[in-house]
Design a protein around this nucleic acid. Structure first.
Length: 474
RNA sequence: GUCCCGUUCGUCUAGUGGUUUAGGACACCGCCCUUUCACGGCGGCAACACGGGUUCAAAUCCCGUACGGGACGCCA
Protein backbone atom coordinates (compact mmCIF):
# COMPACT_ATOMS: atom_id res chain seq x y z
CA UNK A 1 0.00 0.00 0.00
CA UNK A 2 1.34 3.41 -0.89
CA UNK A 3 0.63 6.52 1.08
CA UNK A 4 -2.10 7.89 -1.10
CA UNK A 5 -4.10 4.70 -0.81
CA UNK A 6 -4.84 5.75 2.74
CA UNK A 7 -8.53 6.06 3.56
CA UNK A 8 -9.65 7.32 6.97
CA UNK A 9 -13.11 7.96 8.26
CA UNK A 10 -14.98 9.93 10.85
CA UNK A 11 -18.05 8.09 12.13
CA UNK A 12 -20.13 10.36 14.37
CA UNK A 13 -23.39 9.25 15.85
CA UNK A 14 -26.12 11.79 15.32
CA UNK A 15 -26.63 13.12 18.82
CA UNK A 16 -27.44 16.70 17.93
CA UNK A 17 -24.04 18.09 18.81
CA UNK A 18 -20.43 17.52 17.94
CA UNK A 19 -18.34 16.89 21.02
CA UNK A 20 -15.00 18.66 21.04
CA UNK A 21 -13.29 15.30 21.56
CA UNK A 22 -14.94 13.98 18.43
CA UNK A 23 -13.83 17.11 16.65
CA UNK A 24 -10.25 16.24 17.53
CA UNK A 25 -10.75 12.69 16.28
CA UNK A 26 -12.11 14.13 13.06
CA UNK A 27 -9.14 16.51 12.84
CA UNK A 28 -6.58 13.75 13.25
CA UNK A 29 -8.32 11.56 10.69
CA UNK A 30 -8.54 14.46 8.27
CA UNK A 31 -4.94 15.50 8.86
CA UNK A 32 -3.65 12.00 8.34
CA UNK A 33 -5.64 11.52 5.14
CA UNK A 34 -4.56 14.88 3.74
CA UNK A 35 -0.97 14.30 4.81
CA UNK A 36 -0.97 11.07 2.83
CA UNK A 37 -2.98 12.56 0.01
CA UNK A 38 -5.52 9.85 0.65
CA UNK A 39 -9.24 10.05 1.34
CA UNK A 40 -11.28 11.19 4.32
CA UNK A 41 -14.82 9.82 4.55
CA UNK A 42 -17.81 10.46 6.78
CA UNK A 43 -20.27 7.84 7.94
CA UNK A 44 -23.21 8.46 10.22
CA UNK A 45 -23.45 5.79 12.93
CA UNK A 46 -27.17 5.35 13.21
CA UNK A 47 -27.72 1.62 13.53
CA UNK A 48 -29.70 2.58 16.58
CA UNK A 49 -32.50 4.06 14.53
CA UNK A 50 -33.95 5.95 17.45
CA UNK A 51 -30.91 8.15 17.48
CA UNK A 52 -31.29 9.15 13.93
CA UNK A 53 -32.66 12.46 12.83
CA UNK A 54 -31.81 14.72 9.95
CA UNK A 55 -31.22 17.84 11.99
CA UNK A 56 -28.54 16.02 13.96
CA UNK A 57 -26.80 15.10 10.73
CA UNK A 58 -26.96 18.73 9.66
CA UNK A 59 -25.28 19.77 12.91
CA UNK A 60 -22.42 17.41 12.14
CA UNK A 61 -22.04 18.72 8.63
CA UNK A 62 -22.14 22.32 9.82
CA UNK A 63 -19.57 21.69 12.51
CA UNK A 64 -17.23 20.05 10.00
CA UNK A 65 -17.75 22.93 7.66
CA UNK A 66 -17.01 25.48 10.36
CA UNK A 67 -13.80 23.61 11.15
CA UNK A 68 -12.94 23.45 7.42
CA UNK A 69 -12.70 19.67 7.47
CA UNK A 70 -13.77 18.70 3.98
CA UNK A 71 -14.61 15.12 3.15
CA UNK A 72 -14.48 13.03 0.03
CA UNK A 73 -17.87 11.39 0.04
CA UNK A 74 -21.50 12.21 0.62
CA UNK A 75 -21.89 11.18 4.27
CA UNK A 76 -23.51 7.81 4.27
CA UNK A 77 -25.93 6.39 6.76
CA UNK A 78 -25.04 3.14 8.43
CA UNK A 79 -28.74 2.40 8.71
CA UNK A 80 -28.98 2.32 4.94
CA UNK A 81 -26.52 -0.57 4.88
CA UNK A 82 -28.47 -2.71 7.34
CA UNK A 83 -29.39 -5.45 4.89
CA UNK A 84 -25.76 -5.99 4.05
CA UNK A 85 -24.95 -6.29 7.77
CA UNK A 86 -27.76 -8.79 8.26
CA UNK A 87 -26.56 -10.87 5.34
CA UNK A 88 -23.07 -10.99 6.80
CA UNK A 89 -24.41 -12.08 10.19
CA UNK A 90 -26.46 -14.89 8.63
CA UNK A 91 -23.52 -15.96 6.56
CA UNK A 92 -21.44 -16.27 9.69
CA UNK A 93 -24.07 -18.46 11.31
CA UNK A 94 -24.12 -20.64 8.22
CA UNK A 95 -20.36 -21.00 8.35
CA UNK A 96 -20.41 -21.90 12.03
CA UNK A 97 -18.63 -18.69 13.03
CA UNK A 98 -21.64 -17.31 14.84
CA UNK A 99 -24.66 -18.77 16.60
CA UNK A 100 -28.13 -18.06 17.94
CA UNK A 101 -28.44 -17.24 21.61
CA UNK A 102 -31.82 -17.36 23.37
CA UNK A 103 -30.88 -15.87 26.72
CA UNK A 104 -33.22 -13.44 28.40
CA UNK A 105 -32.00 -10.10 29.70
CA UNK A 106 -32.49 -11.43 33.23
CA UNK A 107 -30.27 -14.43 32.61
CA UNK A 108 -27.62 -12.18 31.17
CA UNK A 109 -27.74 -9.87 34.13
CA UNK A 110 -27.31 -12.83 36.44
CA UNK A 111 -24.24 -13.93 34.52
CA UNK A 112 -22.77 -10.43 34.68
CA UNK A 113 -23.27 -10.34 38.43
CA UNK A 114 -21.57 -13.63 39.06
CA UNK A 115 -18.74 -12.84 36.65
CA UNK A 116 -18.04 -9.69 38.59
CA UNK A 117 -18.25 -11.53 41.88
CA UNK A 118 -15.83 -14.17 40.66
CA UNK A 119 -13.45 -11.66 39.13
CA UNK A 120 -13.89 -12.79 35.56
CA UNK A 121 -13.69 -10.38 32.66
CA UNK A 122 -15.95 -12.10 30.14
CA UNK A 123 -19.42 -12.52 31.54
CA UNK A 124 -21.53 -14.47 29.07
CA UNK A 125 -21.08 -18.18 29.81
CA UNK A 126 -21.57 -19.24 26.18
CA UNK A 127 -24.39 -21.60 27.09
CA UNK A 128 -25.83 -21.48 23.55
CA UNK A 129 -22.56 -21.65 21.69
CA UNK A 130 -22.70 -25.39 21.07
CA UNK A 131 -26.30 -26.25 21.73
CA UNK A 132 -28.26 -27.97 18.96
CA UNK A 133 -30.99 -26.07 17.14
CA UNK A 134 -33.69 -28.36 18.61
CA UNK A 135 -33.07 -26.87 22.05
CA UNK A 136 -34.29 -23.48 20.91
CA UNK A 137 -37.24 -22.39 23.04
CA UNK A 138 -40.39 -21.70 21.10
CA UNK A 139 -41.46 -18.13 20.62
CA UNK A 140 -38.14 -16.60 21.70
CA UNK A 141 -36.36 -14.42 19.19
CA UNK A 142 -32.62 -15.06 19.41
CA UNK A 143 -29.68 -12.74 19.00
CA UNK A 144 -26.69 -13.77 16.95
CA UNK A 145 -23.31 -13.91 18.68
CA UNK A 146 -19.85 -14.45 17.22
CA UNK A 147 -17.66 -17.28 18.38
CA UNK A 148 -14.62 -15.69 19.95
CA UNK A 149 -11.49 -17.81 20.36
CA UNK A 150 -11.44 -19.63 23.71
CA UNK A 151 -7.73 -19.65 24.33
CA UNK A 152 -4.49 -18.08 23.19
CA UNK A 153 -3.69 -14.43 22.93
CA UNK A 154 -4.57 -11.64 20.54
CA UNK A 155 -2.23 -8.85 19.54
CA UNK A 156 -2.72 -5.53 17.84
CA UNK A 157 0.03 -3.20 16.74
CA UNK A 158 -1.42 0.19 17.33
CA UNK A 159 0.21 3.23 15.73
CA UNK A 160 -0.19 5.17 18.94
CA UNK A 161 -0.43 2.60 21.71
CA UNK A 162 2.19 0.25 20.33
CA UNK A 163 1.84 -3.49 20.79
CA UNK A 164 -1.12 -4.41 22.96
CA UNK A 165 -1.71 -8.02 23.94
CA UNK A 166 -4.82 -9.48 25.45
CA UNK A 167 -5.68 -12.94 26.66
CA UNK A 168 -8.47 -14.45 24.60
CA UNK A 169 -10.10 -15.81 27.72
CA UNK A 170 -11.16 -12.24 28.49
CA UNK A 171 -13.04 -11.91 25.20
CA UNK A 172 -16.80 -12.20 25.02
CA UNK A 173 -18.97 -13.70 22.30
CA UNK A 174 -20.37 -10.37 21.30
CA UNK A 175 -23.78 -9.80 19.83
CA UNK A 176 -23.79 -8.82 16.19
CA UNK A 177 -27.52 -9.04 15.44
CA UNK A 178 -30.17 -8.03 17.95
CA UNK A 179 -33.25 -10.11 18.65
CA UNK A 180 -35.30 -7.64 16.63
CA UNK A 181 -33.11 -8.49 13.65
CA UNK A 182 -31.16 -5.24 13.54
CA UNK A 183 -27.36 -5.23 13.39
CA UNK A 184 -25.31 -3.86 16.23
CA UNK A 185 -22.64 -1.21 15.97
CA UNK A 186 -19.94 -3.85 16.52
CA UNK A 187 -20.89 -5.62 13.31
CA UNK A 188 -21.88 -2.61 11.26
CA UNK A 189 -18.68 -0.73 11.92
CA UNK A 190 -16.59 -3.60 10.61
CA UNK A 191 -18.65 -4.35 7.55
CA UNK A 192 -18.84 -0.69 6.61
CA UNK A 193 -15.17 0.00 7.25
CA UNK A 194 -14.36 -2.95 5.03
CA UNK A 195 -16.82 -2.01 2.31
CA UNK A 196 -15.64 1.59 2.31
CA UNK A 197 -12.04 0.50 1.99
CA UNK A 198 -10.93 2.12 5.25
CA UNK A 199 -7.21 1.53 5.74
CA UNK A 200 -6.67 3.43 9.00
CA UNK A 201 -9.01 3.46 11.95
CA UNK A 202 -8.12 6.46 14.09
CA UNK A 203 -10.43 6.76 17.10
CA UNK A 204 -10.61 7.37 20.83
CA UNK A 205 -8.89 4.83 23.04
CA UNK A 206 -12.19 4.05 24.69
CA UNK A 207 -12.46 1.67 21.72
CA UNK A 208 -9.17 -0.07 22.36
CA UNK A 209 -10.76 -3.01 24.16
CA UNK A 210 -13.41 -3.31 21.48
CA UNK A 211 -10.73 -3.75 18.89
CA UNK A 212 -9.86 -7.24 20.04
CA UNK A 213 -13.46 -8.33 19.97
CA UNK A 214 -14.02 -6.76 16.59
CA UNK A 215 -11.00 -8.47 15.14
CA UNK A 216 -12.73 -11.79 15.77
CA UNK A 217 -15.18 -10.73 13.09
CA UNK A 218 -12.48 -9.63 10.66
CA UNK A 219 -10.80 -12.99 11.07
CA UNK A 220 -14.01 -14.95 10.63
CA UNK A 221 -14.77 -13.08 7.45
CA UNK A 222 -11.23 -13.45 6.16
CA UNK A 223 -10.83 -9.68 5.87
CA UNK A 224 -7.62 -7.76 6.55
CA UNK A 225 -7.66 -5.70 9.68
CA UNK A 226 -7.10 -1.99 9.21
CA UNK A 227 -4.20 -0.18 10.81
CA UNK A 228 -5.30 1.12 14.19
CA UNK A 229 -4.43 4.32 16.02
CA UNK A 230 -6.13 4.80 19.37
CA UNK A 231 -6.04 8.37 20.57
CA UNK A 232 -6.00 9.19 24.27
CA UNK A 233 -9.13 10.89 25.52
CA UNK A 234 -9.52 14.53 26.41
CA UNK A 235 -10.28 15.12 30.08
CA UNK A 236 -11.70 18.00 32.07
CA UNK A 237 -9.69 19.80 34.74
CA UNK A 238 -10.59 17.14 37.30
CA UNK A 239 -9.22 14.33 35.15
CA UNK A 240 -12.56 12.78 34.24
CA UNK A 241 -13.92 12.46 30.73
CA UNK A 242 -14.69 15.92 29.39
CA UNK A 243 -18.35 16.62 29.87
CA UNK A 244 -20.90 19.36 30.10
CA UNK A 245 -20.12 20.15 33.71
CA UNK A 246 -16.60 21.21 32.75
CA UNK A 247 -17.99 23.99 30.58
CA UNK A 248 -18.36 24.24 26.86
CA UNK A 249 -18.00 20.89 25.14
CA UNK A 250 -19.59 21.06 21.71
CA UNK A 251 -18.17 22.68 18.61
CA UNK A 252 -21.20 24.96 18.39
CA UNK A 253 -20.65 26.17 21.94
CA UNK A 254 -17.10 27.19 21.19
CA UNK A 255 -18.35 29.03 18.17
CA UNK A 256 -20.93 30.83 20.29
CA UNK A 257 -18.29 31.72 22.84
CA UNK A 258 -16.54 33.68 20.12
CA UNK A 259 -13.63 31.44 19.23
CA UNK A 260 -12.21 31.34 15.73
CA UNK A 261 -12.19 27.92 14.08
CA UNK A 262 -8.45 28.08 13.46
CA UNK A 263 -7.91 28.62 17.18
CA UNK A 264 -9.99 25.60 18.12
CA UNK A 265 -8.16 23.52 15.54
CA UNK A 266 -4.72 24.66 16.65
CA UNK A 267 -5.59 24.00 20.27
CA UNK A 268 -6.96 20.55 19.51
CA UNK A 269 -3.93 19.71 17.42
CA UNK A 270 -1.59 20.52 20.29
CA UNK A 271 -3.61 18.38 22.66
CA UNK A 272 -1.73 15.14 22.35
CA UNK A 273 0.53 16.06 19.50
CA UNK A 274 3.55 18.28 19.24
CA UNK A 275 6.32 19.24 16.91
CA UNK A 276 9.28 20.50 18.89
CA UNK A 277 8.62 23.83 20.54
CA UNK A 278 6.21 25.03 17.89
CA UNK A 279 2.91 26.34 19.25
CA UNK A 280 1.16 27.66 16.17
CA UNK A 281 0.49 25.75 12.99
CA UNK A 282 -1.21 26.87 9.83
CA UNK A 283 -3.41 24.25 8.22
CA UNK A 284 -0.77 23.70 5.55
CA UNK A 285 1.94 23.17 8.12
CA UNK A 286 -0.23 20.82 10.12
CA UNK A 287 -0.98 18.72 7.06
CA UNK A 288 2.67 18.62 6.17
CA UNK A 289 3.99 17.79 9.62
CA UNK A 290 1.28 15.61 11.14
CA UNK A 291 2.06 11.99 11.86
CA UNK A 292 0.46 9.31 13.98
CA UNK A 293 3.75 8.34 15.61
CA UNK A 294 3.97 11.75 17.21
CA UNK A 295 0.68 11.36 19.06
CA UNK A 296 1.03 11.07 22.83
CA UNK A 297 -0.34 8.10 24.69
CA UNK A 298 -1.56 9.95 27.74
CA UNK A 299 -4.80 11.83 28.16
CA UNK A 300 -4.73 15.62 28.20
CA UNK A 301 -6.78 18.02 30.29
CA UNK A 302 -8.73 20.61 28.41
CA UNK A 303 -7.52 24.10 29.34
CA UNK A 304 -10.01 26.82 28.42
CA UNK A 305 -7.53 29.53 29.37
CA UNK A 306 -4.96 28.35 26.90
CA UNK A 307 -7.55 28.11 24.16
CA UNK A 308 -8.37 31.72 24.92
CA UNK A 309 -4.79 32.83 24.55
CA UNK A 310 -4.47 30.97 21.26
CA UNK A 311 -7.62 32.68 20.11
CA UNK A 312 -6.18 36.07 21.05
CA UNK A 313 -3.25 35.24 18.82
CA UNK A 314 -5.43 34.35 15.84
CA UNK A 315 -7.65 37.38 16.38
CA UNK A 316 -4.58 39.58 15.94
CA UNK A 317 -3.70 37.81 12.72
CA UNK A 318 -7.21 37.75 11.30
CA UNK A 319 -8.26 39.91 8.40
CA UNK A 320 -10.20 43.01 9.48
CA UNK A 321 -13.12 42.59 7.12
CA UNK A 322 -13.46 38.98 8.12
CA UNK A 323 -13.57 39.98 11.78
CA UNK A 324 -16.27 42.52 11.05
CA UNK A 325 -18.34 39.83 9.36
CA UNK A 326 -17.76 37.48 12.27
CA UNK A 327 -18.49 39.99 14.99
CA UNK A 328 -21.75 41.17 13.43
CA UNK A 329 -23.87 38.31 14.78
CA UNK A 330 -22.40 38.83 18.26
CA UNK A 331 -23.34 42.50 18.12
CA UNK A 332 -26.80 41.59 17.04
CA UNK A 333 -27.61 38.82 19.49
CA UNK A 334 -25.58 40.19 22.37
CA UNK A 335 -26.24 43.91 22.02
CA UNK A 336 -29.19 44.15 19.67
CA UNK A 337 -27.06 46.17 17.33
CA UNK A 338 -26.86 46.34 13.55
CA UNK A 339 -23.75 47.78 11.93
CA UNK A 340 -24.72 50.96 10.10
CA UNK A 341 -22.86 52.37 7.14
CA UNK A 342 -21.00 54.87 9.27
CA UNK A 343 -20.44 52.25 11.92
CA UNK A 344 -18.89 49.96 9.33
CA UNK A 345 -16.48 52.68 8.22
CA UNK A 346 -15.45 53.28 11.82
CA UNK A 347 -14.97 49.57 12.48
CA UNK A 348 -12.82 49.24 9.41
CA UNK A 349 -10.68 52.15 10.54
CA UNK A 350 -10.52 51.04 14.16
CA UNK A 351 -10.22 47.27 13.83
CA UNK A 352 -6.44 47.18 14.14
CA UNK A 353 -6.72 48.84 17.51
CA UNK A 354 -9.68 46.73 18.55
CA UNK A 355 -8.55 43.24 17.64
CA UNK A 356 -5.27 43.43 19.54
CA UNK A 357 -7.21 43.86 22.76
CA UNK A 358 -9.83 41.15 22.41
CA UNK A 359 -9.47 37.49 23.27
CA UNK A 360 -12.76 36.45 21.70
CA UNK A 361 -15.40 37.74 19.32
CA UNK A 362 -17.62 38.30 22.33
CA UNK A 363 -15.06 40.74 23.72
CA UNK A 364 -14.54 42.27 20.31
CA UNK A 365 -18.25 42.96 20.10
CA UNK A 366 -18.44 44.79 23.39
CA UNK A 367 -15.21 46.69 22.67
CA UNK A 368 -16.68 47.81 19.36
CA UNK A 369 -19.90 49.27 20.65
CA UNK A 370 -18.67 52.82 21.22
CA UNK A 371 -17.87 53.08 17.53
CA UNK A 372 -21.38 52.05 16.60
CA UNK A 373 -23.75 53.99 18.82
CA UNK A 374 -24.92 57.57 18.30
CA UNK A 375 -23.81 60.27 20.70
CA UNK A 376 -27.15 60.37 22.48
CA UNK A 377 -27.09 56.61 23.07
CA UNK A 378 -23.80 56.52 24.98
CA UNK A 379 -24.43 54.71 28.24
CA UNK A 380 -22.18 55.57 31.16
CA UNK A 381 -21.05 52.65 33.26
CA UNK A 382 -20.25 52.96 36.93
CA UNK A 383 -16.56 53.18 36.08
CA UNK A 384 -17.25 55.79 33.44
CA UNK A 385 -19.25 57.89 35.89
CA UNK A 386 -16.25 58.08 38.21
CA UNK A 387 -14.42 60.17 35.65
CA UNK A 388 -17.39 62.38 34.95
CA UNK A 389 -17.29 64.31 38.21
CA UNK A 390 -17.37 68.01 39.04
CA UNK A 391 -13.63 68.34 38.38
CA UNK A 392 -14.09 66.90 34.93
CA UNK A 393 -16.61 69.48 33.84
CA UNK A 394 -14.21 72.37 33.22
CA UNK A 395 -11.78 69.96 31.60
CA UNK A 396 -14.39 68.79 29.14
CA UNK A 397 -15.58 72.32 28.49
CA UNK A 398 -12.05 73.38 27.71
CA UNK A 399 -11.46 70.28 25.62
CA UNK A 400 -14.60 70.99 23.65
CA UNK A 401 -13.31 74.30 22.36
CA UNK A 402 -9.80 72.92 21.93
CA UNK A 403 -11.17 70.14 19.73
CA UNK A 404 -13.00 72.63 17.56
CA UNK A 405 -9.71 74.31 16.78
CA UNK A 406 -7.83 71.21 15.77
CA UNK A 407 -7.26 71.04 12.07
CA UNK A 408 -6.64 68.83 10.27
CA UNK A 409 -8.45 66.43 12.59
CA UNK A 410 -5.83 63.69 12.51
CA UNK A 411 -4.22 61.40 15.07
CA UNK A 412 -1.05 63.46 15.41
CA UNK A 413 -2.79 66.80 15.52
CA UNK A 414 -5.25 65.49 18.09
CA UNK A 415 -2.42 64.20 20.23
CA UNK A 416 -0.67 67.51 20.01
CA UNK A 417 -3.87 69.34 20.92
CA UNK A 418 -4.51 67.11 23.91
CA UNK A 419 -0.97 67.45 25.21
CA UNK A 420 -1.03 71.21 24.88
CA UNK A 421 -4.32 71.32 26.69
CA UNK A 422 -2.96 69.13 29.47
CA UNK A 423 0.10 71.33 29.82
CA UNK A 424 -2.00 74.45 30.07
CA UNK A 425 -4.82 73.21 32.26
CA UNK A 426 -3.86 70.00 34.01
CA UNK A 427 -0.30 70.42 35.24
CA UNK A 428 0.86 68.47 32.21
CA UNK A 429 -0.94 65.38 33.43
CA UNK A 430 -2.37 63.83 30.31
CA UNK A 431 -4.38 61.31 32.29
CA UNK A 432 -6.44 64.03 33.92
CA UNK A 433 -7.58 65.06 30.48
CA UNK A 434 -7.84 61.74 28.76
CA UNK A 435 -9.86 59.85 31.35
CA UNK A 436 -12.80 62.25 31.33
CA UNK A 437 -12.55 62.31 27.55
CA UNK A 438 -12.53 58.54 27.49
CA UNK A 439 -15.61 58.37 29.66
CA UNK A 440 -17.33 60.96 27.49
CA UNK A 441 -16.56 59.11 24.26
CA UNK A 442 -16.97 55.50 25.33
CA UNK A 443 -19.02 55.66 28.50
CA UNK A 444 -16.42 53.69 30.39
CA UNK A 445 -12.80 53.74 31.52
CA UNK A 446 -11.30 51.32 29.03
CA UNK A 447 -10.81 51.75 25.32
CA UNK A 448 -8.26 51.71 22.53
CA UNK A 449 -5.97 54.68 22.07
CA UNK A 450 -8.09 57.81 22.21
CA UNK A 451 -6.04 59.76 19.69
CA UNK A 452 -6.97 57.09 17.21
CA UNK A 453 -10.58 56.81 18.36
CA UNK A 454 -11.10 60.56 18.26
CA UNK A 455 -9.85 60.74 14.69
CA UNK A 456 -12.08 57.86 13.63
CA UNK A 457 -15.15 59.25 15.35
CA UNK A 458 -14.60 62.63 13.71
CA UNK A 459 -14.87 66.13 15.08
CA UNK A 460 -18.64 66.45 15.06
CA UNK A 461 -19.26 63.17 16.81
CA UNK A 462 -16.54 63.81 19.39
CA UNK A 463 -17.90 67.25 20.16
CA UNK A 464 -21.42 65.92 20.45
CA UNK A 465 -20.30 63.27 22.91
CA UNK A 466 -18.33 65.77 25.00
CA UNK A 467 -21.35 68.06 25.01
CA UNK A 468 -23.56 65.26 26.18
CA UNK A 469 -21.13 64.35 28.96
CA UNK A 470 -21.03 67.95 30.17
CA UNK A 471 -24.81 68.01 30.36
CA UNK A 472 -24.76 64.69 32.10
CA UNK A 473 -22.50 66.06 34.84
CA UNK A 474 -24.96 68.93 35.13
C1' G B 1 -13.82 -6.55 40.93
C1' U B 2 -11.45 -8.12 36.04
C1' C B 3 -8.83 -6.64 31.67
C1' C B 4 -6.37 -2.65 28.99
C1' C B 5 -3.86 2.13 28.87
C1' G B 6 -1.28 6.01 31.13
C1' U B 7 2.08 9.06 34.84
C1' U B 8 7.99 15.38 32.80
C1' C B 9 6.54 22.51 35.93
C1' G B 10 -0.68 24.20 38.05
C1' U B 11 -1.94 22.99 32.48
C1' C B 12 -0.37 21.59 27.24
C1' U B 13 4.14 19.74 25.84
C1' A B 14 9.97 19.12 24.12
C1' G B 15 13.00 15.25 25.38
C1' U B 16 13.74 8.31 22.39
C1' G B 17 20.80 6.18 27.14
C1' G B 18 25.62 10.81 27.60
C1' U B 19 24.70 17.46 23.86
C1' U B 20 20.23 18.81 30.14
C1' U B 21 22.28 23.44 35.75
C1' A B 22 15.45 19.05 32.08
C1' G B 23 13.69 23.39 26.90
C1' G B 24 9.07 26.05 25.07
C1' A B 25 3.92 27.78 25.59
C1' C B 26 -0.35 29.13 28.76
C1' A B 27 -1.32 30.61 33.74
C1' C B 28 0.98 33.14 37.94
C1' C B 29 4.55 36.98 40.12
C1' G B 30 7.86 41.33 39.26
C1' C B 31 9.82 45.26 36.17
C1' C B 32 9.57 48.32 31.66
C1' C B 33 6.33 50.75 28.03
C1' U B 34 1.85 53.84 28.76
C1' U B 35 -3.89 58.60 27.99
C1' U B 36 -7.07 53.72 30.53
C1' C B 37 -7.52 48.50 30.02
C1' A B 38 -5.09 45.46 27.16
C1' C B 39 -0.91 44.42 23.67
C1' G B 40 4.25 44.18 23.64
C1' G B 41 9.34 43.71 25.86
C1' C B 42 12.43 41.81 29.86
C1' G B 43 13.00 38.78 34.18
C1' G B 44 11.22 35.19 37.90
C1' C B 45 8.64 30.92 40.22
C1' A B 46 7.81 25.92 38.90
C1' A B 47 8.25 19.13 36.89
C1' C B 48 11.00 13.72 35.41
C1' A B 49 4.88 9.71 40.84
C1' C B 50 7.63 6.15 44.15
C1' G B 51 10.90 1.79 44.83
C1' G B 52 14.05 -1.67 42.78
C1' G B 53 17.09 -3.29 38.85
C1' U B 54 20.11 -3.12 33.75
C1' U B 55 24.39 0.18 32.35
C1' C B 56 30.58 3.36 32.91
C1' A B 57 26.02 6.52 32.36
C1' A B 58 18.56 6.57 32.84
C1' A B 59 13.43 11.45 32.46
C1' U B 60 14.80 8.01 28.58
C1' C B 61 15.34 0.40 29.00
C1' C B 62 13.15 -3.67 32.49
C1' C B 63 10.25 -5.14 36.93
C1' G B 64 7.14 -3.85 40.98
C1' U B 65 4.07 -0.31 43.89
C1' A B 66 0.96 3.86 44.11
C1' C B 67 -2.25 6.98 41.72
C1' G B 68 -5.31 8.33 37.41
C1' G B 69 -8.21 6.94 33.18
C1' G B 70 -10.84 3.60 29.90
C1' A B 71 -13.56 -0.93 28.82
C1' C B 72 -16.54 -4.76 30.79
C1' G B 73 -24.74 -3.21 27.13
C1' C B 74 -29.63 -6.72 22.46
C1' C B 75 -25.39 2.18 23.18
C1' A B 76 -22.24 3.89 19.71
Amino acid sequence: MTKNDVVTRFPPSPTGMMHIGNARTALFNWLYARHCEGKFLIRIEDTDRERHNDEAVEVIKESLKWLSLDYDNEPESQYENRQRHIDVANEMVKNGQAYYCYCTPEELQGMRDSAKAEGRSASYDRRWRDRPAEDAPAGVKPVIRVKAPLEGKSVINDEVQGEVIVDNSTLDDLIILRSDGTPTYMLAVIVDDHDMGITHVIRGDDHLNNTFRQNVIYDALGWDQPTYAHLPLIHGADGAKLSKRHGAVSVQEFQQLGYLPESVMNYLLRLGWGHGDQEFFSTEEAVKLFDLKGVNKSAAKFDYVKLESINAHYMKEADNDRLIDLVAPFLQTGHDMIISEIGLARLQAGMDGLKDRSKTLVELASESIFYLVDADKIAYTEKGEKHLNADAKPVLEGLLSAMKNISPFTHDAIEEGCREFANAHADGKLGKVMMPLRAALTGTDKSPSLFEAVEILGKDEVCARIQKAIQHIG
